[in-house]
Amino acid sequence: MKELSLHILDIVQNSIKAKAKNITVDIDEDDSADKLTITITDDGCGMSEEFLANVRDPFTTTRTTRKTGMGISLFEAAAKQTGGALDIKSKLGEGTTLTVWFGLSSIDRAPLGDMAGTMVTIIGGAPDIDYIYRHKTGKGEFILDTRELREVLGDVPFNVPDVLNWINGYIEEGLADIS
């Protein structure tokens, strides 16, 4: 993948398929530790210990149509080439937390890319789920909590073009403030 934000878009689809009601995407750019850490947490169905043990294997998937699932193994490979690592914790019935860190200044690290585009694609694709997107840099923190937006919007769903457009702009402006 050309951008880390594309991996995030891909991995969050797993949380959506796991029937999560709440998904948190946490990004921490830590200059002093030279680490970029991405954490994706959901309260979906979780994985059994047996499935979890094999989940990084590209030939492990819940899909029944084909036998390959590349998402997690690609994300892990992208992290490893920067000296980083990927970790997954999961419990059946409780949910899953995926943490992946990258060498922030590694020349082999793909750029984070269009995070506003990723969040808007996720929210527009599964508008009934609630999301928290938290992004920390040395300059500050940006938080988008869709529950706050839902309070303002009432019955108007997230997948109305004007709403998605607003969310896109809101994230772009918020990230510009902390970059």
């Binding site: 993948m1 594309l6 891909d10 699932g69 590349m70 690609l74 269009d114 998605l164």
Partner: peptide, 23 residues
């Protein structure tokens, strides 16, 4: 199509282009 293969090949900007054009 928005699975790993689609995303890696550039589906996100394609989806965005359709949404913007329709709007």
């Amino acid at each position: 199509g928005m699975a790993t293969c689609g995303i890696a090949a550039g589906a996100r900007p394609v989806l965005k282009a359709f949404s913007e054009e329709v709007t």
